[in-house]
Amino acid sequence: MIAIKGVSKNWREFSLKNIDLEVRKGEYFVILGPTAAGKTLLLELIAGFYKPDHGEIWVNDKNVTRMPPEKMGIGFVYQDYSLFPHLTVKENIEFGLKLKKMPKEDVEKKLKEVMKMLDISHLSHRYPRTLSGGEQQRVAIARGIVIEPSIMLLDEPLSALDTRTQIRLREELRRVHRGAKLTTIHVTHDQTEAMALADRIGVMMDGEIVQTGTPEEIFHSPIDEGVAEFVGVENIIEGIVESSEEGATTIRINDHIIEAISSAEAGSRVRICLRPESITIAPSKTTSSARNTFSGTITQLVPLGATYRVEIDCGFPLVALITKTSMEDLGLRAGKKVCTSFKASSVHVL
């Protein structure tokens, strides 16, 4: 278990403010935040590369705040992989093993195992500069896990890779984590990556952890507008609570009434958060269990690869996501009238 207690640090252009965080044993914890939020610095503090100005770091009930990094037993993978350029793949991976003063046969055995697991055995005698990004990343992961660390720290490990390699390596990371039940902290700015890998997520903004929770909690119940925007809640609309009874709430937005589940009091000003993928689009009004149905006009269609972003004016603006096939089936285009609907439980009230 890792416990970060009130840690602050000013370093170059970054600053961490009073970070409190607990990562459970065996957990895959993702720190999600925009670039320059101080995520890497936090990892470097945990690894012991730098010392915090204030606060303490505990690992397995031991205060390790002032411990030198070589005593920590932590595997660290940087965004740019940081392979030793003057050593071959094999020499890179055995760097840590050789320091453990293990019998030579054991070193060889472990090397073989880890290289087989990450499918890099054929690269053994190559130098890092001759490898592709994906291959380099596998080597970096192998080098980190071969020393059997108690904690693995991953700093944006996938962000420099193309999408296909990203998805493949994501699977690999999950497999490695499950296999070794390794407590892992993974830093990223990519919400899809966070969603795919995390047991729990901590959202970091401007040097602070602003929210921790399961992916479900973070993506559907963001704690404030900043987090909501960052995790891709594209619909944040202001309204006034008309009535609230045992959680069933009605909220007035201009001339429209939205039903939601919330404990907000009648008369209070609120903002509703609605993820674009929670909205369904139909050519005309249909019956469904969704409590909220509005008709509107498409104002814009923005292609995003396999999906389209649909902007609709329903008397208030709404953004929805739709697959390319659905868009073609429904014959959607700007100016077309459509019917949008979403469930009361999809609406998160701030």
């Binding site: 470097e44 690894a47 012991g48 590369f49 030198p68 990094p69 070589e70 920590m72 037993g73 932590i74 595997g75 660290f76 940087y78 740019d80 940081s82 030793f84 350029p85 003057h86 760097f95 840590g96 320091l99 453990k100 080098r143 980190g144 020393i147």
Partner: peptide, 24 residues
């Protein structure tokens, strides 16, 4: 960062200097 990684792999400051920083 190369020095940081070497330290995390268990190398002391001296070892890191001799095996990583100096050769590079």
């Amino acid at each position: 960062r190369l020095e940081n990684v070497a330290r995390s792999l268990g190398a002391s400051q001296w070892h890191t200097f001799c095996k990583i920083s100096f050769p590079l």
